[in-house]
Design a protein around this nucleic acid. Sequence first.
DNA 1: GTTAAAACCTCTAGTAACTAGAGGTTCAAG
DNA 2: CTTGAACCTCTAGTTACTAGAGGTTTTAAC
Lengths: 145, 145
Amino acid sequence: MTRKKNTASLSIGQLSKAANVKVPTIRYYEQQQLIAAVGRSEGNQRQYSEQELQQLKFIKHARDLGFSLNDVRTLISLDHQPNASCENAHSIAAKHLESVRCRLARLKRLEDELERIVSQSDSGLNDQCSVIKALADHSQCESEH
Amino acid sequence: MTRKKNTASLSIGQLSKAANVKVPTIRYYEQQQLIAAVGRSEGNQRQYSEQELQQLKFIKHARDLGFSLNDVRTLISLDHQPNASCENAHSIAAKHLESVRCRLARLKRLEDELERIVSQSDSGLNDQCSVIKALADHSQCESEH
DNA sequence: GTTAAAACCTCTAGTAACTAGAGGTTCAAG
DNA sequence: CTTGAACCTCTAGTTACTAGAGGTTTTAAC
């Protein structure tokens, strides 16, 4: 009956919508200690505040950028202990950028080869599919992968 | 003592080296029915022939190109039943190319944003790390991700 | 005030594609 | 004949969730 006004609490469903993170994922993050295990209602339901919303948005953004949960964990702890944190955070991000660039280069090569494989239109009546032939025969490839 | 000469059989380790696929992975592929459960020596060790080597190379190549094991399974069965197979194989490959292109585009956007985050050199003595700030604040992002 | 649906709870198991490890057997070389 | 590498099976762990079972609470309608 008595509703607190100062910080309206969010149910897990409301948090989910606000951060665009699915409900089971939020519970999973709690279990993994990425967000705090918050207080509960009389009926044992989680009650979140603005703080957890911010944290969850942080996590979501980092995940969308491809950081691993482990990276996220480290970044969060750096965020919470403000001294000397930035060098570490920077190196995590830089390392991640590096790995994104590697994947990018690799994917580009794959694109080229797949393109080549797909575009060999099976025009005539060859006895075997060119796609399958191309997969069987690595020597056709122009680059490593 | 009596070695068959016609098709010298390969141990799993030799097969592994020849196809550049790790030994436990080969066993895993057998369990997943991607390669045949071959005959064994008296001492219960697997004996492979050229046929399995070709098959394993096929799988390896397809995996390197990013096809899922499920795709590989389908491609293999198409390879083994030669009629009307090519359209299917082609569509699997085309679909895969499509998805590679999506990932490529997405990764490029990530690269841009990460680059931006990383290059905001924390020159001055700001009270919070720019990397962490950038992650907390999605509104800085130039594109969706 | 009741009732029904939606949202919540916990827990377990499943996904993909391996990888690691335990605990034991067989093979090849010296 | 012995030692060490390579082999065997089986189970469990990895990542980041997702799905489902089986049950409780909240909310909205009547």
